[in-house]
């Protein structure tokens, strides 16, 4: 029996060694993944989840989605974000808080992406720009909302019944619900 184990081990070992050799030989001929960075900066494409720097996307009418709730500011572990809001009076006489300045200090950002995750409106995101070296730290403090921009009018969103209760947060969005509703359902518990 001992001898059988010895021989079986020998044969099995040689088989696995062969598998290893085959794998490396295949890798030898695959396309190399090295990025030759300064030369290829024209065509360099970072991967999807890459966190370059925080941006606030604006649409063609110079509108952003930020409602100045300040959740990103309170959740930021480094105090990177400062949301300056102001109160205005709408035509129908209601008071409303709107965004005045969205200040982002990239010099102390640690790219944890908490701000993007807590945002109930998907107003901010990370882009792919990473060449941010400057000589003066103050240049890294930027205002993300464009001058003269305003908040997008909110579309009425049909919320699923389960959404408002945080305890019953659905692990998977129902397949039948529209994408936006599912999105809202995912966001709601976090904001409460």
């Amino acid at each position: 029996m001992e001898n059988m184990n010895y021989l079986q081990g020998l044969v099995a070992g040689m088989k696995t060694l062969g598998v290893g050799l085959k794998t490396t030989m295949r890798e030898f001929f695959t396309k190399k993944i090295t990025e030759q960075y300064p030369e290829n900066r024209k065509e360099l494409v970072m991967f999807d989840r890459f966190r370059g720097s925080l941006v606030m996307p604006h649409n063609e009418q110079n509108e952003h989605k930020c409602i100045a709730c300040g959740l990103c500011m309170t959740n930021c572990p480094n105090g990177t974000i400062e949301v300056k809001s102001k109160m205005i009076e709408t035509e129908d006489g209601k008071k409303k808080k709107i965004l005045d300045q969205y200040i982002y200090d990239q010099g102390i950002c640690m790219y944890c992406q908490v701000c993007v995750r807590v945002c109930p409106q998907d107003a901010i995101t990370f882009d792919q720009s990473f060449e941010t070296a400057v000589f003066d730290r103050q240049k890294l403090v930027r205002q993300l909302n464009q001058p003269g921009s305003k908040c997008q009018e909110k579309k009425p969103v049909a919320r699923p019944a389960a959404a408002p209760k945080p305890a019953e947060k659905p692990a998977v969005a129902p397949a039948s619900a529209p994408a936006e509703a599912a999105d809202a359902a995912e966001k709601t518990p976090k904001t409460e």
Partner: peptide, 11 residues
């Protein structure tokens, strides 16, 4: 070594 590790090596 570089080619086996899917790299380009010294260039």
């Amino acid at each position: 070594c570089a080619f086996f590790q899917c790299r380009l090596g010294p260039n």
